[in-house]
Design a protein around this nucleic acid. Sequence first.
DNA 1: CTTTCTGCAAACTCTTTGCACTCGT
DNA 2: ACGAGTGCAAAGAGTTTGCAGAAAG
Lengths: 137, 137
Amino acid sequence: MTPRRTPQLDAVYDVVRAADDHPTADTVYARVRRVMPTVSLGTIYRNLQKLAAARCVRVLHVGDRITRYDAVVVEHDHFCCERCGAVHDVEAPRTRTRRRPAHVHAGYAVRTQVVTFYGLCPHCAGVVPRVAAGAAR
Amino acid sequence: MTPRRTPQLDAVYDVVRAADDHPTADTVYARVRRVMPTVSLGTIYRNLQKLAAARCVRVLHVGDRITRYDAVVVEHDHFCCERCGAVHDVEAPRTRTRRRPAHVHAGYAVRTQVVTFYGLCPHCAGVVPRVAAGAAR
DNA sequence: CTTTCTGCAAACTCTTTGCACTCGT
DNA sequence: ACGAGTGCAAAGAGTTTGCAGAAAG
């Protein structure tokens, strides 16, 4: 039961670390295939699970029911655009103490918390001038 | 395209309103069938979507990839137990201003936000004495 | 009467899994 | 060489959808 390091595992981790768009398993699959064309989708899922279990990647359930992956493991928030579906990281300058759920009823053992904002991203909100539009990510 | 009121729609809404456990579509299905045995799962999904579109129920994606429904539409937080999977409402005495994402980069139009805490519920954390354990769903 | 809604079942999407083979260690 | 990992394809869970008939307005 000793975990084993394989080129596929490395490739999956590389892709997730290089991504800033919180890719889905399918997106990771497509990207890994660019460098390793014979990889299978099952292997992608198995390795993503392995990385998640090792807390090397974070599993996100944002908005819809499809799973996304994030190589940024430190606690931070997300913004999900309801129009284009993009998921962006959000700066969370609030202190931990301020965010700590002191209001949760006694007896709950809180391990982590997830904050997700929904709305329109700058691009979809039309704030970004036309010239710059399309350049957004 | 005029929405139509049907006994099935009423039954679905009644079930969600009467529930305090953030039921899944399947759970709603089971409960509606108790009073309307011929209802179909497809109808449950269609009516849940209709209610969600009308903002009569809130759609929740908490933890896993299955969809839950909540008749409490006002903004509030949730706690998800990582052991038994239960979802509880959480008191959110924080003021709106305090929770407002002033730190979100300019240009984002935030419509709503979702805060979910993960950990162990009082029951699974062992606060509840052994005699009661095992009754947890 | 017209149009939406229903029940049924098949289709669809995302994810997991069984199997025989491969390849780290 | 042992056993975890892989590719493949089939199965599984949750959700959506096409259709013919039922029923709301």
